[in-house]
Amino acid sequence: MLEELRNAVISGADKKAEEFVRQALAEGKEPIFLMNEGLIPAMEEVGERFNHKEYFVPEVLLSARAMKAGLALLRPLLTEQKFQPVGLVVLGTVQGDLHDIGKNIVGMVLEGAGFQVQDLGADVPPDKFVNAVKESGAQILGMSALLTTTRTVMATVVKKLKEQGIRPGVRIMVGGAAVSDDYARKIEADAFAKDALEAVAKARELTVRR
């Protein structure tokens, strides 16, 4: 059953993934068990295949959708059982920038790795990021920018977080075609991730380091 669930996610079969989760729950399997032994390792395998250039973006999207279909059934139960997510991530594409596919993949892959994700969408103004971090108490803020004209918004957000005294409580990750390791350092973000898989690895690292 577990292997079938993993295979359904890996092959991107969302209906099957949903059905296997439903069946497993009916058989009395623990939601946490299905998350930790089913969905998370399946998405790790997807990540491996992406790293080895066996999977590309469409295949990752299919798998992420299947993972989400299973997760949708587990989530209310996990909340009930006070399952602790690995961490809470506030995520968004910065103001002026409508590119959201990379950001969406990052969000889904983070969820697949056990993070809770609050996705603010695209074209997000600085104050919305700041308020979301403040209100949610997120451990990580992830921002995406695909344009050099919009990446400056990231610096504005960092500045505002500092001004309001909440910068020390949150780790900042940036990504997107317009940013780099150097740029992340320049605006005093904590990490740059070049793709969704790196985003997961760095998010884990930043959560552990706290």
Binding site: G12, V57, P58, L61, L62, R65, I101, N104
Partner: peptide, 10 residues
């Protein structure tokens, strides 16, 4: 849409 198009490929 890029995501819907990705799904359509399959």
């Amino acid at each position: 849409g890029v995501e819907p198009l990705s799904f359509l490929l399959y």
